[in-house]
Deep mutational scan, measured.
Amino acid sequence: MTEYKLVVVGAGGVGKSALTIQLIQNHFVDEYDPTIEDSYRKQVVIDGETCLLDILDTAGQEEYSAMRDQYMRTGEGFLCVFAINNTKSFEDIHHYREQIKRVKDSEDVPMVLVGNKCDLPSRTVDTKQAQDLARSYGIPFIETSAKTRQGVDDAFYTLVREIRKHKEKMSKDGKKKKKKSKTKCVIM
């Protein structure tokens, strides 16, 4: 069974824990209790493949930012979460993405942009803004509501699919490099 290491990042209060708990335990946590770091595991079937999701729910508070490099190193894919009623959390996505790329030393890291709290009427981040940002990053965008469960499975499952595509691409690139290195030079 394939294991996928997913990391949920975003500013404090955007609903990272609520999304994760909704996926794992099928219930909505409405009281806000700032996370330092929590880890969850769940076995699911995605596109006919049974897999184990190892999900790291991270601290959004700035005082825990020193811990970010460590979990970013171990993560295979990242859910970059903002709240649709919090423009600052949307603007912060850029910083999370840049930090992930720096730590992973790669421009090509599996990510999904997630606009959470889409059940709320007080939207300050337009869907088109988020779609445009995701398009500019070359990553999928999904709106979710941890409260109603809308888009929750889709967000995590899409990230797994992005990781699969990335692994497939990397193995193809690896095979191309191996083929090239088999060419021999004969000096007579």
Score class of each variant (00 low, 15 high):
64 Y>P: 02
99 Q>V: 11
121 P>M: 08
116 N>C: 15
122 S>C: 11
75 G>N: 07
63 E>T: 04
119 D>R: 03
122 S>A: 12
73 R>G: 11
83 A>F: 00
106 S>V: 11
71 Y>L: 03
112 V>H: 00
97 R>S: 09
84 I>M: 15
84 I>P: 15
114 V>N: 01
66 A>P: 12
78 F>Y: 10
107 E>V: 11
124 T>Y: 10
106 S>K: 07
71 Y>C: 13
64 Y>V: 02
88 K>M: 09
113 L>A: 04
81 V>C: 08
116 N>V: 15
104 K>G: 10
78 F>M: 02
82 F>M: 14
114 V>R: 00
86 N>T: 06
75 G>C: 07
69 D>Y: 04
78 F>N: 01
71 Y>I: 05
118 C>E: 10
122 S>D: 13
68 R>G: 08
82 F>Y: 10
110 P>Y: 01
98 E>A: 06
105 D>Y: 06
86 N>A: 07
88 K>G: 11
112 V>M: 04
115 G>C: 13
110 P>Q: 02
64 Y>G: 03
98 E>L: 02
64 Y>F: 05
98 E>N: 04
67 M>W: 12
80 C>F: 14
70 Q>P: 09
104 K>P: 04
76 E>P: 03
78 F>L: 03
95 H>A: 12
66 A>C: 14
108 D>T: 08
112 V>R: 00
79 L>G: 00
78 F>H: 02
100 I>H: 02
113 L>N: 01
69 D>S: 09
121 P>E: 14
83 A>W: 01
107 E>K: 07
103 V>W: 15
113 L>F: 13
90 F>R: 10
98 E>S: 05
82 F>K: 01
65 S>I: 06
90 F>V: 13
80 C>V: 13
90 F>S: 04
108 D>F: 07
73 R>K: 09
118 C>M: 11
97 R>G: 06
83 A>C: 04
123 R>Q: 13
113 L>Q: 00
113 L>H: 00
66 A>L: 09
101 K>E: 10
123 R>A: 14
100 I>A: 03
123 R>P: 12
79 L>N: 00
76 E>M: 14
118 C>H: 07
71 Y>D: 12
125 V>R: 10
97 R>Y: 15
78 F>C: 02
106 S>C: 14
71 Y>M: 06
117 K>T: 14
126 D>V: 07
73 R>N: 10
97 R>V: 15
89 S>A: 08
103 V>T: 08
65 S>R: 09
66 A>M: 13
74 T>S: 12
79 L>R: 00
118 C>D: 11
76 E>F: 11
124 T>N: 12
70 Q>E: 10
106 S>A: 10
116 N>H: 14
111 M>Q: 01
67 M>H: 06
109 V>L: 06
122 S>W: 08
66 A>R: 08
77 G>V: 13
63 E>F: 02
86 N>Y: 02
112 V>I: 09
110 P>C: 03
113 L>M: 11
109 V>I: 10
68 R>C: 03
95 H>C: 05
118 C>K: 06
78 F>W: 04
121 P>S: 12
74 T>F: 07
82 F>P: 00
71 Y>E: 08
69 D>N: 09
63 E>H: 01
102 R>C: 07
102 R>T: 06
100 I>P: 00
87 T>R: 07
121 P>D: 13
64 Y>C: 03
110 P>G: 01
83 A>P: 11
106 S>I: 13
113 L>R: 01
117 K>Y: 15
116 N>W: 00
72 M>D: 04
125 V>C: 12
124 T>F: 09
79 L>P: 02
71 Y>H: 15
107 E>Y: 09
71 Y>V: 10
68 R>I: 01
70 Q>V: 08
120 L>T: 10
75 G>L: 03
117 K>A: 15
77 G>I: 11
80 C>G: 04
73 R>M: 09
98 E>Y: 00
66 A>N: 11
96 Y>L: 15
75 G>P: 04
73 R>I: 06
66 A>I: 08
120 L>F: 10
111 M>S: 01
104 K>L: 10
107 E>N: 11
77 G>K: 00
86 N>C: 05
110 P>S: 02
107 E>W: 10
120 L>H: 13
119 D>T: 06
102 R>I: 04
70 Q>A: 13
114 V>Y: 00
107 E>L: 11
102 R>Y: 05
80 C>M: 12
66 A>D: 11
79 L>I: 14
114 V>F: 01
73 R>D: 09
83 A>K: 05
124 T>M: 11
81 V>I: 06
67 M>P: 04
115 G>P: 06
79 L>Y: 01
83 A>S: 12
125 V>P: 10
66 A>W: 14
84 I>N: 14
76 E>T: 14
105 D>A: 08
74 T>H: 12
112 V>Q: 01
69 D>G: 06
84 I>A: 15
106 S>F: 10
97 R>N: 05
101 K>T: 08
111 M>A: 02
67 M>R: 15
123 R>M: 13
74 T>Y: 11
87 T>S: 10
126 D>K: 07
77 G>N: 00
125 V>L: 11
69 D>L: 02
124 T>V: 10
100 I>C: 03
101 K>D: 04
80 C>H: 05
76 E>I: 13
65 S>T: 09
69 D>K: 06
84 I>C: 15
125 V>W: 12
64 Y>E: 01
65 S>G: 09
126 D>Q: 08
109 V>G: 02
103 V>D: 07
77 G>S: 04
105 D>T: 05
75 G>I: 05
111 M>Y: 04
97 R>M: 15
95 H>L: 04
75 G>R: 04
65 S>K: 08
116 N>R: 01
75 G>M: 04
75 G>Q: 05
101 K>N: 07
118 C>R: 06
